[in-house]
Design a protein around this nucleic acid. Structure first.
Length: 347
DNA sequence: GAGGCGTGGTA
DNA sequence: TTACCAAGCCT
């Protein structure tokens, strides 16, 4: 097994992808060490999210809050606004909770300990292993979607996920070396992201081409098997965009739990399975005008079609939400579905 | 343990 | 256009 990890590390030394949060093999030779805060930030952002989507968000967060203490001292609304558009907003809420826990309980330093990391908000089995491994070079088995795919192919494992997870983890464990476990973890993930891709894997240039059983069997493109997903239902709703004469917008902060939790948004109706031609959920009396067109947006588990109502109001009395002054309103603070409604109203 | 939880890119 | 997919966590 040592030979396999050696082959992979040799490949990684040459092909490691450059990322703003990554300390590459050459930098390490020069004595550079990873910043655990940056490693943690990147790993939270990368949960179910592509490198391309994360890169600019990561740079903005680190520039605005250079240390975990800076982040812990931030206002909730600042962090949620900066996260807007990246999705899975529970990550942002847990990001703040975690930063505050690190300051309060760990003296402002991320613990170099897998079990302690696992106790922090938003850090699960993957992220705890990734931080321990990448930031502190401790040997832990890092298993994300890339690793699952690489292992399923290396060992031609046809059991569908998630049932196959334990056996794939055992395979990953046996391949993890004692030396440079952090680089090894990043190498497997880079391999999965660039060569052992979900579709059309580039087996011809893979450093593990020879030992890979799925390549020998010709089954690599169809692995890993996954249990089929449910079809997404279509839901319907209405949002209300009221602008006061002085330019302030009527917005609300959504409840901390549930969809888009803690994010700013437009007041409106519940989102239901059957379209109701009559708008409901109005936050205040006004001469509402229904816009032509609609907002279409897809969440993890349903499609959404929104009607958009607009009104110019003088009255500042609203049943829901609050008026946010024009100079404090930034569309980029809105989650994407809410920004789509704003864009429709502006067009 | 199965489902809730975003978004943008890609085929 | 539709469906799938990406460095998962929480309940």
């Amino acid at each position: 097994m040592r030979d396999l990890s050696r082959e992979l590390l040799d490949w990684y030394d040459i092909h490691a992808r450059a990322m703003p949060w990554r300390v590459g093999p050459r930098d390490k030779l020069a004595g550079v060490r990873p910043d655990p805060y940056a490693v943690w930030m990147s790993e939270i952002m990368l949960q179910q999210t592509t490198v391309a989507a994360v890169t600019e968000y990561f740079k903005r967060f680190i520039a605005r809050w250079p240390t975990v203490a800076d982040l812990a001292a931030a206002e909730d609304a600042e962090v949620m606004g900066e996260w807007a558009g990246l999705g899975y907003y529970a990550r942002a809420r847990n990001l703040l909770k975690c930063a505050r826990a690190v300051v309060a309980d760990h003296g402002g330093q991320f613990p170099a300990d897998h079990a302690a990391l696992l106790k922090l908000p938003g850090i699960g089995p993957y992220t705890a292993a990734a931080i321990a491994s990448i930031a502190f070079d401790l040997r832990h088995v890092v298993v994300d979607g890339n690793v699952e795919r690489v292992m399923a192919r290396m060992f031609d494992e046809h059991t569908p996920l998630p049932a196959a997870k334990p056996v794939l983890t055992e395979h990953a464990d046996r391949l993890t070396p004692n030396e440079r476990p952090g680089d090894h973890a990043q190498a497997v993930m880079d391999l999965g992201a660039t060569i052992c891709t979900p579709k059309s894997p580039a087996c011809g240039i893979c450093p593990w081409r020879d030992p890979c059983r799925a390549r020998a069997a010709g089954t690599a493109p169809e692995l890993p098997k996954k249990t089929p997903k449910k079809a997404k239902p279509i839901r319907h709703g209405t949002v209300y965009l009221a602008q006061r004469d002085d330019g302030a917008w009527l917005v609300e902060t959504r409840p901390d739990k549930g969809l888009l939790g803690g994010m700013m948004g437009w007041p409106g109706s519940d989102w239901v399975d059957v379209a109701d031609p009559r708008p409901t959920g109005s936050p205040m009396r006004a001469d509402w005008i229904k816009l032509n067109g609609e907002v279409r947006h897809t969440f993890t588990h349903f499609h959404l079609i929104l009607d958009v109502m607009v009104a110019q109001v003088a009255d500042t009395q609203a049943d829901r939400g609050f008026f946010l002054p024009r100079d404090q309103f930034r569309p980029s603070d809105l989650p994407t579905v809410m920004r789509k409604a704003f864009d429709l109203a502006q067009s």
